[in-house]
Design a protein around this nucleic acid. Structure first.
Lengths: 104, 104
DNA sequence: GATACACATAAGCACAGACTTATGTGATTC
DNA sequence: GAATCACATAAGTCTGTGCTTATGTGTATC
């Protein structure tokens, strides 16, 4: 059951924004808040949800906590998606791109 | 914004169960309810959410409505996932499987 | 055309979850 | 060691959403 927390975690648009920011480069919680109009506790709570879903992981650095994308969460999504590969139409460009990238 | 409805749609465990049942074979709403302890309106509402997310589509057959997996929704998930391919560890077996299957 | 059936929609309720303010914790700085 | 900083946690509020019962809509059957 808790293996699919990534869906619930990514269902919230604010958490998707946080995840995308971290995908562009790891940073600490304060830096994540820049330009986001979100309170410090709210950010902390969102990061806790993303952590529980293994989409994000932390590296403590002194009094800062550096956050980065956790590949494990993405792998779980890929595994989930792979179960339904029978339904992927061959024409989908995204899948072709995906295939190309993995080929190298 | 509404292009990521699939996350919200799949965040609910009941809807994931419905989707998985349809992935195993298309059927109508009544058949879906079998062994699920879910009311008829609840099922109808869940199917509406899955439809809105393009994860499921309907084919009207007389007074029955046959539901089936809509590849479009899965393609949207694949597209989203492809954006973060830089973070996929090469060791992940699921991705290798995925690659193999798409290769044919 | 009256009835029964398959499903959708409406309206109301109850709980989950995203937010707030307040406070706690641990590390750095003076 | 007192103050400050980065972040986490607690507790309460409010909105969203998944459920319910009731009713509507369209199709098949008699």
């Amino acid at each position: 059951m808790m293996e699919h927390d990534f869906f619930r975690a990514l269902a919230d648009p604010t958490r998707r924004t946080i995840f995308e920011k971290l995908a562009a480069g790891s940073m600490n919680a304060s830096a994540l808040r820049q330009g986001m109009e979100i309170s410090q506790p709210a950010m902390s709570q969102h990061l806790a949800v993303l952590r529980a879903a293994r989409l994000v992981r932390e590296r403590k650095e002194g009094r800062f906590v550096n956050y980065e994308v956790d590949p494990d969460g993405l792998a779980l999504i890929a595994q989930w998606l792979a179960k339904y590969r029978a339904y992927w139409p061959a024409r989908i460009d995204a899948l072709k791109l995906l295939l190309k990238d993995m080929d190298q």
